[in-house]
Write a protein that binds this DNA or RNA. Structure first.
Length: 563
DNA sequence: TTCCGTTGCGCG
DNA sequence: AAAGCGCGCAACGGAA
């Protein structure tokens, strides 16, 4: 059953049960306590909650101790549909669909601790909530129709479902938080940077390195954080460099270089994940980033603040399970090339992808060289053609023609200004007006023509990569939804007083990797759940394919010990 | 002073 | 080792 709900002041809400086609009967039912009502429905049977925005509604339910199994997020699904139909907001991703897909929020969000307000047709604000509910029901019914009208309604419907489930996972992960040992983090910083400096001052080690850098430039004062000053300083010593990138500096022969490289590495740690980050983002033993579902055009997630998807590897040792608990770290091995194998239906390629090490299985085609197989595949997926790649691509084309044709067709579509879609039907954004203008006129003066050609190629690389990256994101999202369902089943339903966040639960998701935090005794069940979810994801997204999507799992106390 | 484009680097 | 794709964030430095 589908039930639409629009929040009112406090814990109040208006609710309407929906028929299978999304239509509702009569006026909304007034609720004084939404969490209570949601829990009641859950006891009575399966419900898919229909609401405007999971990120707005669900956190308050979780705070009230109520979990929901399924939902339809009108904002997220609206963004998917807008992308497909070329509506406004198509590129907004997690930022929201067009106004038509986003019912006006009720006047009162569920504020924590707020008492249930008296609320009824006579109260101010009631009309707005009532209107919001009507708009929500209409938008949802419209979305169901548009999903059904897709060339692949089954796949696109699955995408809508897992995108919505992603919203639930994101809210739950933020509420749980990543277990984070501030003391371990602090000790690591101190060992690398010296003791914590007073606010605004550089750490001792950085100050020391900075003065060594100046000394290496003959005492000339140089701010090592300023690329412009560095380039000038090098030039004064007769060394001309185009930039101060790592790769450039590595090949420069100058006494400042080794010190500068160390400075850059430590400075990065200090500014991105130093004490200030620790203060701002870690509290009561948890790091709670805000996830943005569908925040990347390919369907990958983004985060807002905290840089959760760019946590440097060196900091993983600060991610430590609670006493008596463990982290189950799972990583989909070689996901993107496997996705390409399944997408293309290339028999020889798919057979190779039925094995544990895809690159090794393909090595035979490249003179037994696994590294060459890897370069060839990455070049095919990313559009690289430098150095040895073009030669390896020729091998790929000959031995695995369908895989080659698949990515080439995507690239051609991009160069022609068309849009491409992922396996489940997520659309890439259309080219910008600027791109169209730039690439429209064919025979221009040389410079303009060259710019146009560069834009064409860039767009081709984007769409070439999109079909793979976005389909991999499809798979990961289906895995995430299936894993969430299985983890919930692991909870002991008879356990009194346990909240929705107390048992085994997802605490981290990064493109092709998940972390589950769970009691030690549950680790075996969690590992099995991950394996089952991965198998299910392959089947649901790609149907009958010999391609396997193996997931490596590690049961560890610290994230640093995985892999 | 604030704003914004550029540079550089972390992650997949 | 870097490259081809996708991001977020911090610092710099010039513009407003």
């Amino acid at each position: 059953m589908r039930v639409a709900v629009a929040a009112g002041p406090g814990r109040t809400a208006l609710l309407k049960e929906l028929a299978d086609d999304g239509t509702g009967q009569g006026a909304g039912v007034l609720l004084n306590d939404l969490p209570d009502a949601v829990a009641g429905y859950a006891r009575a049977g399966q419900v898919r909650w229909v609401w405007a925005d999971t990120a707005e509604t669900y956190p308050a339910l979780l705070r009230a101790g109520v979990r929901v199994d399924r939902c339809h997020d009108v904002r997220l699904v609206g963004a998917l549909l807008a992308g497909r139909d070329g509506g406004p907001g198509a590129a907004a991703g997690g930022a929201g669909g067009p106004a038509a897909d986003r019912p006006a929020p009720g006047p009162g969000r569920l504020a924590a601790g707020q008492q249930a307000a008296l609320f009824g047709p006579a109260e101010p604000g009631f009309a707005e909530v009532s209107t919001a509910l009507d708009q929500l029901v209409a938008a949802h019914a419209d979305q169901l129709r548009r999903i059904a009208a897709d060339p692949h309604p089954g796949r696109f419907g699955l995408l809508a479902a897992v995108e919505s489930a992603g919203g639930l996972v994101a809210a739950e992960m933020q509420a749980r938080g990543v277990p984070w040992r501030a003391d371990v983090h602090d000790a690591l910083l101190a060992s690398l940077l010296g003791n914590r400096p007073a606010a605004g001052l550089p750490p001792p080690r950085l100050a020391e390195l900075a003065s060594q850098i100046s000394a290496a430039f003959g005492g000339r004062p140089v701010n090592p954080d300023s690329p412009a000053q560095l380039i000038k300083a090098f030039a004064a010593d007769g060394v001309r460099i185009p930039s101060t990138r790592l790769g450039v500096l590595r090949d420069v022969d100058h006494p400042a270089v080794p010190v500068l490289l160390e400075y850059k590495e430590l400075s990065r740690l200090h500014t991105a994940n130093g004490w200030a980050w620790l203060d701002e983002w870690v509290s009561r033993g948890r790091f709670r980033p805000e996830y943005v579902v569908g925040g990347v055009v390919s369907g990958r997630w983004a985060t807002r603040g905290g840089g959760a998807l760019q946590i440097p590897r060196v900091l993983r040792r600060a991610v430590v399970a609670d006493p008596g608990w463990v982290l189950v770290v799972a990583d989909a091995a070689q996901l993107e090339p496997r996705v390409l194998a399944a997408l293309a239906g290339d028999h020889a390629f798919a057979e190779a992808a039925g094995t544990g090490d895809l690159y090794q299985a393909l090595a035979g085609a490249f003179g037994g060289d696994r590294a060459k197989a890897k370069v060839a595949l990455l070049s095919a997926m990313y559009g690289g053609a430098g150095g040895e790649a073009s030669q390896l691509l020729a091998v790929l084309r000959r031995r695995f023609p369908r895989a080659d044709r698949y990515v080439e067709a995507a690239a051609r579509a991009g160069e022609e200004g068309r849009v491409v879609r992922s396996r489940l039907g997520r659309s890439c954004p259309p080219p910008s007006a600027e791109w169209r203008g730039l690439t429209a006129e064919a025979d221009d003066p040389d410079a303009a023509e060259q710019r146009a050609r560069r834009s064409l190629r860039a767009r081709g690389r984007f769409t070439r990569n999109f079909v793979v990256q976005a389909s991999a994101a499809d798979w990961a999202l289906v895995l995430l939804g299936g894993l969430r369902r299985r983890l919930a089943a692991l909870q002991d339903p008879g356990l009194d007083g346990s909240g929705p966040l107390d048992g085994p639960g997802l605490v981290f998701f990064q493109h092709d990797e998940v972390i589950v935090h769970c009691p030690e005794a549950a680790a075996g069940d969690v590992v099995a759940a991950i394996g089952a979810a991965a198998e299910e994801a392959g089947r649901l997204v790609f149907g009958d394919t010999p391609v396997r999507f193996p997931v490596s799992t590690a049961v560890v106390s610290s994230y640093a010990d995985a892999k």
